[in-house]
Amino acid sequence: MKRTLLAILFFVALVAIWTALVRAQIWSPVLLPSPRAVLDYLVSAVRDGTLLSATAVTLRRLVLGYVIGLAIGLPLGLLTASSKFVEDTIGVLALGLQTLPSVCWVPLALLWFGQTEGAMLFVVIMGTVWSVVIATDTGVRTLPPIFARAARTMGSGPFHRWIHVILPASLPYLISGMKQGWAFAWRSLMAAEIYVTILTGFGLGHLLHYGRELNAMDQVIGIMLVIVLIGLLADKILFSPWERFLHRRWGTGRI
């Protein structure tokens, strides 16, 4: 209760400082709109439906790309951890591509797919896959061999062992890899949406971009707030339950 109160107090203070700065008129309102103006923009954007449809477009791309990225990255990570050949080939490739900022995929995606949903999806998938591969690989490699040995004596075959021992045992690594993959996917999608206009759907990145073109700082800041909010919610809804589970089961520190 006290913690919640303090948190609320902190954010109220932030808004108060913001308001004070606007009142002081150091910068022109074009550069620094008041919280009130940003709120007005958000309300009007919700009313005319642009904000909700943009959020829907962005989230659809994000979720679809992320799920495909996971579906590719997880098995690939298991493969790199279990085969020397795949480790030396795909493993090295993954390590290299993971260091490539995913916005660098945008020009290539545009040339390959044109200004289509496919290009957006491709960028998100590339942002997700490599960090998931690396995390899965690390998770499997750091497992104590005793788990697999114990399972073998109880009659667990190779396939059963993958599903019931190796995957759950590397869960702490998998979750942090999935979290990182999510963060990369989110960043790369925003970059791609700001960079290119796709006619099949306007996402949050596009709204942000138009805000700049129209010199509408209230829109820019409003959309930024929405993006931050979505990131926070995704963390709380998607990952917090898992992290609580890990904390309870493994007895590791609260994250």
């Binding site: 004596t153 109880m154 089961r249």
Partner: peptide
Amino acid sequence: RLVMFQESALFPW
């Protein structure tokens, strides 16, 4: 033939 190991080989998950 089941084995009980030296260190705890219990599954933490």
